[in-house]
Design a binder for these strands. Structure first.
Length: 218
DNA sequence: ATCCCGAGGG
DNA sequence: CCCTCTGGAT
C-alpha cells in the first residue's frame, strides 16, 4: 500500500527484506541429521569449514560407534580421527569431541547443557555453535551468526557492526524472539543460493531492490 | 592474526 | 589451480 512516491524508511526497508526472506525460504532449517542434543553438538562441531552434506555422510558411522558422551569420551584419538576424516580440521575436532564429551559426563551428568554459559564453556563450542544448539536442540530463542549470516546481513544493511557479537545484537534487536532461529536459517539459505561470498547473483536476487550492496551486472 | 584441513566446485 | 564450506583456540 505504498501509494506515495517516497523512499522507504529504514524500518520499512528491513521489514520488507525479512518478509521476502520468509516468503522465499519458508521452511529453512538445519540440514544436519541428529536424534539427540549430543548428536547435534557433535554434528555442529564437525561442520566447521565443511558442508552439512559432508557431515551427514560421516555421522552415521560415527554415531553407530559412539552416540552418547560416555561412549565418545572413551574413543581413542586415532580411531576418532579415522571416523571423522573427510571433514577437515579433523585433529582439532577429534580433540574437541573427546574433551567436550568428558566434560559433559563429569560436569553435566551426561547431558548437553541447555544454557549459553555452560555450552560455551565446553571445548570447541563458541558463540555460534552454542546458539545453533540452543535453537535446534532446545527450541530456545537464539540467533547464531556464522559466516553466511555475517556476510548476508551486512550486505543487506541489516547489520553494520564489524564484530560478530555486534551483528548478533543488531539482528536480534530488529526481530521478535520467535524469528531469531528461522531468520538464521533463512539468511544461510540465501547465502548459499544467491548471496555467495565471491560472486553474488544480484541480478537474480529477489532482494536486489532493497540491497545497498547490489552489484550491477552480476 | 594465524593455524587447523578434507572435499567439492569453478 | 583457486576458492569456499553454518569456527574455535591460541
Amino acid at each position: 500500500m505504498v501509494t506515495e512516491n517516497r523512499d522507504l524508511t529504514e524500518v520499512e526497508r528491513t521489514a520488507e527484506i525479512f518478509r521476502l526472506l520468509r516468503e522465499h525460504y519458508p521452511r529453512a532449517r538445519t540440514a544436519l541429521k541428529f536424534d539427540t542434543p549430543f548428536q547435534l553438538l557433535v554434528a555442529v562441531i564437525l561442520s566447521a569449514q565443511t558442508t552439512d552434506e559432508q557431515v551427514n555422510r560421516i555421522t552415521p558411522a560415527l554415531f553407530a560407534r559412539a552416540s552418547s558422551p560416555a561412549e565418545m569420551a572413551q574413543l581413542k584419538p586415532a580411531e576418532l580421527e579415522r571416523l571423522i576424516k573427510g571433514c577437515g580440521l579433523y585433529r582439532n575436532k577429534s580433540r574437541f569431541l573427546v574433551e567436550a564429551s568428558r566434560r559433559i559426563v563429569q560436569q553435566f551428568n551426561g547431558r548437553v547443557p541447555d544454557n549459553f554459559v555452560d555450552l560455551v564453556s565446553l571445548p570447541g563450542v563458541g558463540r555460534k555453535t552454542a546458539n545453533v544448539i540452543l535453537y535446534n536442540a532446545f527450541g530456545r530463542p537464539a540467533l547464531a551468526v556464522d559466516t553466511h549470516v555475517y556476510r548476508v546481513s551486512r550486505r543487506l544493511g541489516l547489520a553494520r557492526g564489524k564484530r560478530v557479537e555486534e551483528v548478533e545484537r543488531e539482528l536480534t534487536a530488529r526481530l521478535p524472539e520467535r524469528e531469531w532461529g528461522p531468520v538464521h536459517h533463512r539468511l544461510i539459505a540465501h547465502g548459499r543460493s544467491l548471496c555467495h561470498a565471491r560472486r553474488p547473483e544480484c541480478s537474480a536476487c529477489f532482494l536486489n531492490r532493497y540491497c545497498p550492496s547490489k552489484i550491477e551486472g552480476e
